[in-house]
Design a protein around this nucleic acid. Structure first.
Lengths: 209, 209
DNA sequence: CATCTAATTAGAGTATCATCTAATCAGATT
DNA sequence: AATCTGATTAGATGATACTCTAATTAGATG
């Protein structure tokens, strides 16, 4: 349980201007100058606030020419909103000192997770790199997708053609998998061009169960 | 939708010391000096933080001789935790300016609520003040209880005897109703003594539906 | 009433924060 | 290369916030 992360989140929402920004972004992405206009503040002020919102993990951004569009990271906001409720739950029968300690339990859990992933990869990917079948269990599916997506370059723009070919290295049904890549936020599509999303916004296997 | 209230809530949770306080209180109420000891800060610091937590509606307090015990207001924390999620929902298809305006809709809704309450009271309370029956619908039940409880004095300590008699003015089944008073946080019991809770912590009919 | 206990207020110090103006940077376009 | 556009950085200012010590208050008790 990360106290810093939690406090950063609540601090980020503890300012009226930033709450307004989120309310605006709930209607769809928008760029800095438009936000500045709508809120009646200067662009540097927006830069300042967006840095805080980004650190808190409630928005992410995407560049289009000179313009940076900010996106509300919906799922992350919802998850982090439960933060204090989780603390209250877990605090019962736990001393506060150990509640916020990076204890061995967490390290252990991470090791377990890594092992579980390797296990899943081994059972779904053949030695020559083919995907035997798309896992139906969501957690396993995400593990496999995460593995596949690691071969794509961050920041590079791919044509649909290229994505199809890339996926076909693993499996014939590139259409389904390409759609899953979008649905689970591994990739982003605009006008037929695909690009890897920043890792923070992926659906993550570790968040499940 | 109250922007100030929402910001106050998130500000209150945007400090590590206060989050620790909530984690401690999750194990049960505690008084100022104990908190100060556990956290390694001085009593005035606790006073400072508790004022913020109280303003945010996440704790309430109860005095016992010279000692003030702070209680976590569990239900309120959970409800307010959804604050930003609600904003994001409602912000869709609503301009930000009107989203946070105290618009006529709210005033109207309050009027409606008042009317609904009178209606319920009239149908469950006879002209000579007797409760015909305990409403089974939760919302109506709360309306009736709120009405009944208005006849009790704030701050006064009642013996169980007295509460029973008071309730019997309305209905024979004082035991059930007395239990409901506790369950819905209208009253507080300690060692057979009953006392009205501050209104902020009651279960409220307006929060339903 | 004198005393004890726990909490609060007052006031100060230091840190953080929100916002601005002016200057700079990073891409894109001509 | 020169220019344009939108974002960021630097630095200043005034407001808040966190924490402390010292003094005071409010109840309870002998």
């Amino acid at each position: 349980m990360q106290l810093d992360q939690l406090v950063t989140f609540y601090k980020a929402l503890g300012d009226p201007t930033r709450v307004r920004i989120l309310a605006i972004l709930a209607n769809g992405p928008l760029h800095g100058q438009a936000l500045a206009g709508k809120l009646g503040v200067t662009p540097p002020t927006i830069t300042h606030h967006m840095a805080k919102l980004r650190d808190a993990g409630v928005v992410y951004e995407r560049r289009d020419k000179n313009t940076i569009y900010f996106y509300l990271h919906d799922a992350n906001v919802k998850r982090q909103s439960q933060g204090i409720v989780n603390v209250m739950e877990k605090a019962k029968d736990t001393s506060v000192e150990e509640l916020f300690a990076e204890d061995t339990l967490h390290v252990q859990r991470r090791h377990q997770m890594a092992a579980e992933k390797m296990q899943v990869i081994r059972s779904f990917i053949t030695p020559d790199g083919k995907l035997k079948q798309i896992p139906s269990q969501r957690k396993k599916k995400l593990i496999v997708f995460e593995y596949m997506v690691r071969g794509l370059e961050k920041g590079r723009k791919y044509k649909e053609q290229e994505i199809n070919e890339y996926i076909r290295q693993f499996h014939e049904d590139y259409a389904t998998i390409r759609r899953e890549f979008i649905m689970n936020h591994y990739m982003y599509r605009e006008e037929g061009i695909y690009e890897l999303n920043p890792e923070e916004i992926w659906a993550k296997a570790e968040d499940l169960q």
